[in-house]
Design a protein around this nucleic acid. Structure first.
Lengths: 466, 466
DNA sequence: TGAGTCGGGTCAAAGGTCCC
DNA sequence: AGGGACCTTTGACCCGACTC
């Protein structure tokens, strides 16, 4: 805050009392030696117009303190740069000088640095006002400092994202009209691919890799449905009323299977459309994705506080990435409630279709989307819950219900599994060769990829992917 | 002028951590403007686009960035000449500033030159647009409108909120230990009270009253569960591990009925705890509530765009109410996904208990929370759906499932009802006499209130409440 | 039409920088 | 550890096209 209105007054008083009892700023306004010149200035016209006692080197051109060449009026007095700087520094730092002699030192160009007390006094007497010295301002120089609130950076997130998009440009090449309409099986295949990519994406975030295995698994399980929806919505941004899957199939707004049409319509209407209107950038997208990913309320999280910090960093990054447009940050964040709603509807739909035998849901989807372990049926899961609440239904339908919301907050039981090594930092080359990437993720080679990524076990689970 | 050499250091200490140096403000080019509204605003009324929390005097004359005297609207925000020039120079020269502190510097008349990063960011947040800065002297013929935020104000929201809290202080008087533990019936009673209060709250927002009846009903139905949870979380903030209902019953963290304990635990853990940590203010609370309320994705909404604008205004108000603390706005908004999750779990739990006969769910709860009309069973609702999708289950269990998520986006069929008059603007005295309020909402008089509020029909519905 | 608004621009006098 | 020559930024003020 403002220090020393008081101390400066004290300072001035001190000068006034010891030297010149009549010394005050107001009086100086009156008995100013130099003309106070506040008349309307004509632009381009020198302010020296009025008072011209001496022809050439009028006093306006001379420093009123030391008679050096003046560079203009400063703080109320025509002065040189030296006296200007001296006055500013003295006032800013609230310096208290003392005269070693009898306070009658000559202050001129040569001797102005011999007595700071007398120089400052002459500044005041020449009309300089301490009020004209402003607050310290921002630095101009371009040297950079300051550091991050956390370690999460846009760069890391963008690189992780780039990895999952090596097939995107290829898809864009092909005409959208030549793509085939997806059946339920195609959708499931695409989801599986994307979930594996999500795991790979996460593994490229060093902060994720530093978490415990259980927490990594918990995070991957918790909001995978949102990530699928978010990803598909982003991929579909360039098109109209068409959802483009990761394996190059499409879901049109109309004319698809009933089971998928509702979710598809909501994706297009409630997510793709707003995202189009916002014209979301890549930076914003990865921030949103990261915010969804580091979900501190995720059930069974051991280190929820660390996850909360990471999400905080991510949302601050998004805030900064959007700060040029009022309301944009909020609009993007509010899309997450919509995303959650659509994702849950998709999960319920999937669960329903699985129970009706309309969809062949494999173990990875079971674990990450439906929140169940592939090796067990829903009954086994229920039996393993520690909650003593009596079972209300024992039919498969209960599973639909409980998977939706209730069971989301039942911690998964740990089970032994093979954990593949996790990189402790970013790999030397975070991007796989483009060739491999585009080949692996092309439709028709899904099985290869699955086998490749989870090689040590026949059955893919989140644990084995890590 | 005042001297404040120490202020920066003070700030630095206060802010603590600092942030990423690589950030630049002006790296984006083609950002579009948000939910574009070109609606005709009342000329001459031009509400201050942004206003500082406190003053209610003519904020139109104050600079939205630094609160200096404004010289008019510049680049989309009411601002002073200094901020006008600063914004133009920054945009023209494509400056990239860096905050030396933690990007939450105070920007006011005295300190506006201390951090150009934070000043520029505040310019954007106040509504200034890069596009409004022209390159040369040639003017763009089309005189762009100043993007006014809207008519929603903190004052109106706070007054509406005050109405619903007339009984709060009374409750606080009584010792928390003397309160009784709620049974399921008490919870349902409390919910009904609170839902009626929600209707009254909404009716005190002029912008709500200007919507069509169908839209008003749709909004009230859409997120009532979230409002119940949000309200109960806020009411419980002063206590530890105890949920305080509106009718003065309590739900302890442990020792309540199984059906309620899970939801109660999540409310305490995932909502009350973070809200305590954030120490949410009343202003922030009403903004959050309003954001939840004006849900543009709400099914069956005719005028979704208007609702979107209102939510936009509300989130900008929240942003401004939180702008002094970095990350706070985002943390508050992210609580809404948690709120949604908890609310849905509560609805499923309630649905379950209703089906099991454990809870006596009356018609208002049915309509607002479970999304069904009281006069019909679930079968009737399904039969009225226009969607030709074949029924999969015809048991009551299907209803549980579909109510959860699927049916949320099935538009409710219209039905004739009695509509009580809606005030077209704020009533002369927006607050009912305290006497009436505190009596009506005291526990034990719920039946009276219900009868009073929906007097024209024996059966309360949202329509009749309006 | 004439006052009001909001783009543009200018430049005195603030500021900061950095070698001495 | 200042001093001061030299450069940058600020903002009060003005102009002019356009609107009401």
């Amino acid at each position: 805050m403002k220090i020393s209105g008081a101390s400066l007054d004290l300072n001035a008083t001190e000068y006034g009392i010891t030297l010149d009892p009549t010394f005050t700023m107001l009086e100086f306004d009156g008995l100013r030696v130099l003309p106070v010149q506040t008349e309307p200035l004509i632009p381009g016209h020198a302010p020296a117009s009025v008072q011209v006692p001496a022809p050439q080197h009028s006093s306006v051109n001379l420093c009123a303190i030391c008679a050096d060449r003046a560079t203009g009026k400063h703080y109320g007095a025509s002065s040189c740069d030296g006296c200007k700087g001296f006055f500013r520094r003295s006032v800013r730092k609230n310096h208290a000088y003392t005269c070693r002699f009898s306070r009658q030192c000559v202050v001129d160009k040569d001797k102005r640095n011999q007595c700071r007390y007398c120089r400052l006094r002459k500044c005041f007497r020449a009309g300089m006002r301490k009020e004209a010295v402003q607050n310290e301002r921002d630095r101009i120089s371009c040297r950079r400092e300051g550091q991050a609130v956390g370690t999460l950076t846009i760069d890391v997130l963008m690189q992780a994202e780039a990895f999952t998009h090596q097939n995107l440009s290829q898809n864009l090449m092909r005409d959208i009209n030549t793509k085939k309409i997806a059946c339920v099986g195609d959708v499931c295949e695409s989801m599986k691919q994307q979930l594996l990519l999500l795991v790979e994406w996460a593994k490229r975030i060093p902060e994720f890799c530093e978490l415990s295995v259980d927490d990594r698994v918990a995070l991957l399980r918790a909001h995978s449905a949102e990530h699928l929806i978010l990803g598909v919505a982003r991929r579909s941004l360039p098109y109209n009323d068409i959802i483009l899957l990761g394996n190059d199939f499409i879901i049109p707004f109309r004319g698809t299977e009933q089971e998928m049409s509702k979710v598809a319509a909501r994706i297009l209407e409630e997510l793709v459309r707003p995202l189009k209107e916002l014209n979301i950038t890549d930076t914003e997208f990865v921030c949103l994705k990261t915010i969804v990913f580091f979900a501190p309320d995720c059930p069974g999280l051991q280190c929820a506080q660390a996850v909360r910090r990471l999400r905080f960093q991510a949302q601050v990054l998004l805030d900064e990435a959007t700060s040029e447009q009022r309301g944009r940050f909020g609009e993007l964040l509010l899309l997450l409630t919509t995303l959650q709603s659509v994702a849950w509807q998709m999960v319920e739909q999937l669960q329903l279709m699985r129970l009706l035998g309309k969809a062949n849901v494999d173990s990875l989807l079971m674990e990450m989307l439906l929140g169940e372990e592939a090796t067990r049926g829903p009954e086994a899961l229920q039996a393993s819950e520690s909650d003593p609440e009596p079972l209300i239904f024992s039919t498969a339908t209960e599973s639909v219900l409980s998977r939706g919301i209730l069971a989301e907050h039942i911690p998964m039981p740990n089970f032994t599994s093979v954990i593949l090594p996790v990189p402790s930092s970013l790999p030397e080359d975070p991007l796989l060769p483009t060739h491999t990437g585009s080949e692996v993720f092309t439709h028709g080679q899904t099985a290869d990829m699955t086998r490749e990524t989870s090689s040590s076990l026949a059955m893919p689970t989140v644990h084995t992917c890590l």
